[in-house]
Simulated scan of single mutants.
Amino acid sequence: MNDIIRIETNSRASRAVIYNGIVYLCGMTAEDRSQDIRGQTQQALARIEKYLALAGTDKSRLLTAQIWIKDIVNDFPIMNEIWDAWTVPGSPPTRATAQCDMGSPEVLVEIIVTAALPLQA
């Protein structure tokens, strides 16, 4: 049986959970929420890279992504531009994007990813 490993856990949630060779990240948002959609998307993706590295993997091993965006009409093209430049060519994950009301009004984008750990020899 595999152990469940939790990274940066508090009473409500963990930033990442690793189980059975899969890394599940919580929703990542920008740390500086005064930024526009470009800045918030870049910051959220940087945080994703940080937590994937802490878990022992990277963005080339993404399996799926969920993107929640506050204003899909105006911000979707810009977010996609940043996303497309960030993902590894030839290795995009499955993805769903939806507009939603965010937990905080200043949050413009939240991204959730799941990734595989590298195979162990």
Rank of each mutant, 00 (worst) to 15 (best):
M1R: 08
D3N: 06
I5K: 13
R6N: 07
T9L: 15
T9H: 09
S11E: 15
A13E: 14
A13F: 12
V17I: 14
I22A: 06
I22H: 03
V23Y: 10
V23L: 04
Y24R: 14
G27R: 12
G27C: 12
G27T: 11
T29V: 14
T29G: 03
T29P: 02
A30I: 07
E31T: 04
R33D: 05
S34F: 01
S34M: 05
Q35F: 02
Q35S: 10
D36H: 04
D36N: 13
R38H: 03
Q40G: 02
T41F: 08
Q42H: 09
Q43V: 01
A44I: 01
A44L: 00
R47S: 07
I48V: 11
E49P: 03
K50I: 02
K50Y: 11
K50Q: 11
L52D: 01
L54S: 07
L54Y: 08
L54F: 09
A55I: 00
G56N: 11
T57S: 11
K59H: 04
S60I: 04
S60D: 07
L63N: 07
A65Y: 02
Q66R: 13
I69Y: 05
I69G: 10
I69E: 04
K70H: 01
K70D: 02
K70R: 13
D71V: 01
D71S: 03
V73M: 05
F76E: 15
I82G: 04
I82W: 09
A85G: 09
W86K: 02
V88A: 06
S91Q: 15
A96P: 00
A96Y: 06
A98F: 08
Q99F: 00
M102Y: 07
G103T: 05
P105W: 09
E106D: 15
V107T: 14
V107L: 06
L108D: 03
L108Y: 05
L108C: 00
I111L: 09
V113I: 08
V113L: 06
T114S: 11
A116W: 00
P118Q: 13
L119P: 04
Q120T: 14
